[in-house]
């Protein structure tokens, strides 16, 4: 299964990619920041506080996306006994963890002037906090166990239990009364966010995604070099 994942061939591509991704990231981030902080209008109700959203929402999206990817990769790796999938998951996790913390912190900074509180134990916020703990568990598992087989199994279990939380995060605002507002962007119906604010939001999401890709490539290259140096270990 998936024999075409030759470490040397992958490494040829992934070792060259970071500089292009970095370039693209800087370009998109600069445009995104100018759009979000200067060009986009202020909100009718919360005025300039709305600009926090351009960091908060993309960070939350990316962290959910990364956790879902990690889960799918880990489960596939577990079922098909593919080591490469585990290495990709491992390399993806740190940026997901960081974006999760960014989402919580920016949410807190936004919450104080608008809601009147730094923190609320409502369903959305609490489930995001639980996701951070799952990220932490996942990262720690890779550090405490030496035996690879063990790491693969335990980390997969962490993602399987953690992924249950992801739909809860997504639908918490619809299922229960929460302080957090429901989603503004809906793929099937009209968004309740004005287009002049939607474009900077999408640009910032692209920038954050590129940043995650960059960190992922750097981490993944390190893993590949480790395998190369060991010499005997094959993907």
């Amino acid at each position: 299964m998936l024999k075409f994942f030759e470490p040397n061939k992958i490494f040829k591509i992934t070792s060259r990619a970071p500089k292009y991704v970095l370039f693209l990231f800087i370009v998109v981030l600069s445009i995104g920041l100018v759009e979000a902080l200067v060009l986009s209008p202020e909100d009718y109700k919360q005025s300039d506080a709305v600009r926090i959203m351009y960091v908060h929402v993309p960070a939350a999206w990316i962290t959910l996306g990364i956790f879902s990817s990690i889960t799918i990769l880990s489960i596939s790796g577990f079922i098909f006994k593919n080591k490469n999938f585990f290495l990709i998951s491992k390399s993806l996790a740190p940026s997901g963890f960081v974006f999760n913390i960014i989402a919580l912190v920016t949410g807190s900074i936004w919450g104080k002037p608008t809601w009147g509180t730094w923190w609320a134990w409502d369903a959305r916020i609490t489930s995001m906090l639980i996701l951070v703990l799952f990220y932490a568990m996942y990262l720690i598992v890779w550090r405490i166990y030496e035996a690879e087989e063990k790491v693969y199994k335990i980390s997969t279990l962490v993602t399987i239990v953690g992924i249950i939380n992801v739909p809860i995060i997504k639908y918490s605002v619809d299922w229960w009364n929460t302080l957090h507002q429901p989603a503004s962007i809906n793929l099937l119906s009209k968004s309740s966010i004005h287009s002049s604010m939607l474009y900077p939001l999408l640009l910032m999401t692209a920038a954050f995604a590129l940043f995650s890709l960059l960190i992922f490539l750097m981490k993944y290259n390190t893993e590949l070099i480790k395998i190369k140096n060991k010499g005997l270990d094959r993907l």
């Binding site: 209008p41 507002q181 604010m197």
Partner: peptide, 9 residues
């Protein structure tokens, strides 16, 4: 409680 509507004034 803030609602999900975002728009310029």
């Amino acid at each position: 409680k803030h609602d999900e509507n975002y728009m310029p004034p």
